[in-house]
Design a protein around this nucleic acid. Structure first.
Lengths: 195, 195
DNA sequence: GTGCTCATGTAAGGTGTTACATGATTGG
DNA sequence: CCAATCATGTAACACCTTACATGAGCAC
């Protein structure tokens, strides 16, 4: 039931519609959890039934009506209970790595393109994370922020995201370099595995 | 159908039983894919039906019989076809980050314990990855290895794993430091959010 | 004699994805 | 005029996890 708790945490940032929550996952939680809207609306309905969130329907004239969700005391209680359980391991699923692991039997050029796209996605994400960080710090240095801000949780996960995107960019560069190094040599000397 | 392809890639390392494949995922692919044995046996059976792998039953007297799986030409073809498709984004799911994002309403000490455990797990994994790297290099420097080894795919994904564990360890240290910094200050000045 | 490794699987349930369905407003 | 944004949901399917089931050998 991690999705539940991920939603509860996102609601600490303030009440939101399902649509807005989906957006919050896309921008600031993408480095540790992901959801599709379809799953999210279903889960929010169940959470309301269980009393973890309160939903208020806001009637709108120019747009479809929306449901604004907010945390209940029971919701915060559930989050606290969850936080006391030991965490499972991080789970990563990355198609690109499957393909790279098999590069010696596959199309090198296609994979280099894939790696370049991944790199660009990380550059964009990093830029966005760093802008968010500046917004949070709001001119203060980190020490001051850490000691005075109302919350540090989102800052800590943001640091994780920043480090992770930097790591991805560095890996993409290294991988592209190594693939090129081997390819140059391979013009004169062939490698056995070609299927 | 990424699991399929992850299994095909693992079979590039040589024929194996389902049990051995589960082990290969645990040790060297944990940083980009994960499987449970139950899922794996089911998928291997389907892959055999689809002709992507060949299964040979090995009768054993002292242990239950085993099924040794190996790649077929169709299996390698599928891997090559898959590698030409553009990759989806990496998906990460990390319970610890959900809890850390909510640290300002939760039990700080419990989370620090969780972070310490995560750090230790990464230290252990890093040690194991670095041993694997030395085995692969086998005394050669990286440049020589890259230009002469029969395969570089597993080396590239291993580098990713090493970078990722180092990143995790560094983040755990930073997070613990920041939490402590805030806590020391919090003895004299309280923060509003305690739910 | 306790627990780990090898070795395979089934059944049930939970989680996550894709496709479908609707439709006005806003910005370029 | 086309695309994106706001806003919600259902149905069907695919995928993954957990619990259960079995059982011998080997190391401490």
């Amino acid at each position: 039931m991690s999705l539940r708790n991920a939603l509860l945490v996102k609601l600490l940032d303030g009440e939101a519609t399902g649509y807005e929550l989906a957006g919050r996952f896309g921008t600031s939680a993408a480095n540790y959890w992901s959801v599709r809207p379809a799953q999210l609306y279903a889960e929010l309905t169940r959470m309301e039934e269980d009393g973890l969130v309160a939903a208020e329907t806001v009637v709108q004239s120019k747009r479809p009506n929306k449901r604004l969700f907010s945390l209940t005391a029971a919701g915060i209680g559930e989050l606290q209970r969850y936080a006391r359980e030991p965490s499972g391991r991080m789970s990563v699923k990355d198609e690109l790595m499957i393909k790279v692991a098999g590069i010696d039997v596959s199309d090198r050029a296609a994979l280099l393109g894939d790696i370049a796209r991944r790199r660009q996605a990380s550059v964009d994400m990093l830029r966005s994370y760093e802008a968010t960080r500046q917004d949070m710090l709001d001119g203060r240095d980190e020490e001051t922020f850490v000691q005075t801000a109302p919350r540090i949780g989102p800052y800590l996960t943001l640091l994780r995201g920043i480090a992770s995107e930097r790591g991805t960019i560095a890996w993409c560069d290294t991988a592209a370099r190594i693939i090129a190094e081997r390819h140059n040599r391979a013009d004169t000397q062939e490698h056995p595995i070609t299927a």
